[in-house]
Design a protein around this nucleic acid. Sequence first.
DNA 1: ATTGAAAGACCGACCAA
DNA 2: TTGGTCGGTCTTTCAAT
Lengths: 164, 164
Amino acid sequence: MTRPPVTLDDLDRKIVAALIANARTSFAEIGAAIGLSAPAVKRRVDRMREAGVITGFTATVLPNALGWRTEAYVEVYCDSAAPPRRLAEVVRDYPEIIAAMTVTGGADALLHIRATDIEHFERVLERIRAEPFIRKTVSQIVLSHLIANSPEAGASPGTPADTQ
Amino acid sequence: MTRPPVTLDDLDRKIVAALIANARTSFAEIGAAIGLSAPAVKRRVDRMREAGVITGFTATVLPNALGWRTEAYVEVYCDSAAPPRRLAEVVRDYPEIIAAMTVTGGADALLHIRATDIEHFERVLERIRAEPFIRKTVSQIVLSHLIANSPEAGASPGTPADTQ
DNA sequence: ATTGAAAGACCGACCAA
DNA sequence: TTGGTCGGTCTTTCAAT
């Protein structure tokens, strides 16, 4: 999975910025903005996808609108014997966990979780706490977002119907 | 900014799922998959954008590849007099803050921050700590992600060149 | 929601610097 | 190697049904 070192020039960065702003912008339009032809833009995009710089194109949605009304960050404290590897396997089994990472500080890992409601969140949390090597969890439930169009405010695990 | 209540039917949810999976999927292809014509799909997408269910289409990139090599979550403790409103204004001035929310628990808010490196992060943190109503901060620096293709693993504040 | 037609986007092949 | 041009094909988009 390790890829060759990628060097992006200024044109590449402008193309990426344009696609982050609107992933459906046509290559011709991007090209017009930076002084390149549409096929030239496409070649650069293909190269960056190949290199793994661009990993995909997605729609951002309001999770609320899809029924994900509860969001939380959960600090996880593990038994000292448990390797991060083990945690990674567990975490993948929960569609409600939309991000998980190891962190500095007292906790071993931080989970970003979306659930349909508090009841759903409680069920997920209970399942997580029942995992053998997890010692304790500390939850911070999100009350409100302070940035409207943060990229990750639109992150959602799919549709509730798919995962419940 | 308050919008009319939106009701999504099953077709709408399938369209959204398809666009989350790949925002550049053609309407014709989505239509073929769910038994609708391309114009019918387009009108539903337009309606959902209008209603604010779909907020945009973006490219997901590896922040590392763009030079964002340091990521952290920072708990913020405020003076009890400071309203969340005030915090929202401040937070918008930092391009490095890619998400900010009020949370339950001891902290008043949680910030999700990306910086180019530790030095950059330290500068950002010092500026934040210098804000008048902030009493203390607790940082958790992200060591490694446990989920490969988490939607928000690709969230990045732009290009370092734009913001530094 | 579908059809049909015009405008536009995509994508490969080929050529020039 | 990187960009430009060209042509065939698919997609988008708007009207009318």
